[in-house]
Design a protein around this nucleic acid. Sequence first.
DNA 1: CAATAATCGAGACGGTACGTCGTGTCTTACA
DNA 2: TGTAAGACACGACGTACCGTCTCGATTATTG
Lengths: 211, 211, 211, 211
Amino acid sequence: MCASAVPVPHRRGRPRSAAADRAILDATRSALVEVGWSRLTMSQVASRAGVAKTTLYRRWAGKSELVVDAVAVLFDELELPDRGSLRADVEGVIVSFAALLERPEAKTSLMAVIAESTYDEALRARVREAIVERQKRLVLDGRRRAQRRGELPADAPDSAEPEAIVDLIFDVIAGAVVHRSLVSGGPVDAGWVRGFTTLLLEGLGRASAQP
Amino acid sequence: MCASAVPVPHRRGRPRSAAADRAILDATRSALVEVGWSRLTMSQVASRAGVAKTTLYRRWAGKSELVVDAVAVLFDELELPDRGSLRADVEGVIVSFAALLERPEAKTSLMAVIAESTYDEALRARVREAIVERQKRLVLDGRRRAQRRGELPADAPDSAEPEAIVDLIFDVIAGAVVHRSLVSGGPVDAGWVRGFTTLLLEGLGRASAQP
Amino acid sequence: MCASAVPVPHRRGRPRSAAADRAILDATRSALVEVGWSRLTMSQVASRAGVAKTTLYRRWAGKSELVVDAVAVLFDELELPDRGSLRADVEGVIVSFAALLERPEAKTSLMAVIAESTYDEALRARVREAIVERQKRLVLDGRRRAQRRGELPADAPDSAEPEAIVDLIFDVIAGAVVHRSLVSGGPVDAGWVRGFTTLLLEGLGRASAQP
Amino acid sequence: MCASAVPVPHRRGRPRSAAADRAILDATRSALVEVGWSRLTMSQVASRAGVAKTTLYRRWAGKSELVVDAVAVLFDELELPDRGSLRADVEGVIVSFAALLERPEAKTSLMAVIAESTYDEALRARVREAIVERQKRLVLDGRRRAQRRGELPADAPDSAEPEAIVDLIFDVIAGAVVHRSLVSGGPVDAGWVRGFTTLLLEGLGRASAQP
DNA sequence: CAATAATCGAGACGGTACGTCGTGTCTTACA
DNA sequence: TGTAAGACACGACGTACCGTCTCGATTATTG
């Protein structure tokens, strides 16, 4: 989460309160739900968490970094159980991800943070580390299961980059779901999920032919 | 663009300066390039444009609506000439859209405006009208051409919703490109474009098999 | 008071509100009475005056300069009517000045401002201009009257510096009264005033001899 | 100095470091010289002295009491040798006191501490005990010498209050010097000292007559 | 051609949040 | 117990933007 997860307990002085960390992140999420990203203020978070502003700024450089950490834990709760087939697994991840984006904590803040990160290298790194990279595991797991089932070809033994295809799939799925629910604003309902999954699995020709 | 698209000359009194309009939008774009969305201020735009803040607020309700108008013209420059095949057309649209997102005016502000619009219905409408809907025509055109060429099946005459598939394709393409370039941060280079196009046209199995 | 008393009405833009000026100085004085110098805050003054902090800082650089101006008007209210003799005039100015220093607005803040001014040249100048120089008139008037009465020798026609003796008298009277009431903390009662006046008029020998 | 002047060795546990006391007071004085009263902070003093803030607050209640103790020693260095005549003794005490006020440690902090003490009874007592009362001895000594020399009348045997005249003289001398050097800002040079002494010894009429 | 009316630049206004700083208390580990 | 280090709650600081307002000065149409 913040800097050192490694158990260097501390060197000198009073150690930072772990309870404060928790209270702050909780307060951030609940404030996001109630007032949304743009009306969220650091002072507000501090007073909700029963914490001084100083304590906030000692841990996070600003609103954006705080929100990234607060929202990241939501993403960590995502799980992808084996649903028995590649199609079912793909539909599962789409639905789960869409459900996450419907939560007001994520909905209001995710795009804002990404926007902010376009001119802030450190923030971009934090977003990637705390959210993006950790969720690729879902795609990886699903793909491995599909390979075991024989639904997808195994990696060529000399293939240098199975990573590229994983990245591509992740960008397509995450990007499409985000765009659908936050930009277009349409519902991620059963029909859309089925259509998107067909597109992913069989391509444009087949997807176009089906109702 | 702003309020009166209809050329009602004016009611009475001094008419609004058209030069001011142009100067403001230009100033907005150049300021976006230099300082990005979050450091962009209305006062700054005003002074860059050699205009009073009053003049600005008389035309736009706030930063978001101003930026939407300032950026919208970039999207109108997108064109999709017939490249002779569905694959070529798809690659063309991906590359064009990615190129647009590389421009700093668009990069910083697009996501920010969308984020802002999650809690502002009027803004959301404006974004959709000025940016989103206008880009769907690219997908529509490409699809019609492919149907004419026989690369995609024609619409079933009783099909109520060819719109659904167009929306889906649009979300997938736009979403994936945005996610790739703004979130993952990887390059939208020839390799990625080819991989993504293959995925779109032929689905996951074929895309996975190729280097 | 603040910068330009000269009637340059204004050049461009909205002129500064004279009502705000008055409200701020009033609020400052009343806050001084209630909470004292050290608990006085700029925010508090602003909200008492129904004014934004910006408006305060646009006119004064900080708490000290604001308080100097707020207190200066009290000094301007001092008057020294002709009491008929040098002794009576001297006693009058001592009593008036002591009464002023008893007022809580002045009592709490005067020494603080002087302390602050030891490391702040601009503030020192402001104190001198707004308070010190303007009150020398009292000494000057009293002295001229005493000369007219024949109680004090007239200025030698070649005397380059009657100013020096006026400054001296002013420092002695003001300094002694301030020291008595703010440092020693003793009362400036009739006895003390008589003793001090005797010392001033007749010197240490005579003052020591009297009860 | 601080709480325990009596050498109770200590009760239990680790005794307080005497070296720390010295280091703190030295650090306070040097910081006063460099940054002045208002920019002096407890943290700064602590780190200059190589001491924890805890140690500081264990010995002094706040900035004001610390500074009183740090500055008090300067006043103890004042001495008034017998210069042979009342006039010479008076000039001596004026010059010595003025010299003290020229030292930046004293200049910045003396008025500040007195200002602070107007609303703080305990601090006022501390200031009087540590600074004011100790300096009255100079006036007392000088007066007794002048009486022995016959320059001043002896105390009437029934006089209840020779104290009153001493207080008066002290307020006049200290007050005038402070006002001259801190408020009016003029130099306490030989001319001013001679003029002031004449005023003190012979009164306004004679002082006015002299160049 | 004057009267009227909306616009213009400038900049002061009441607000709100910012991120920093100082205070005095506290919690560690060590001496 | 005292100590250095430093985190903590609190509250003021001075700054920056926001969106509105009040100025005097233009610049059009209307009467």
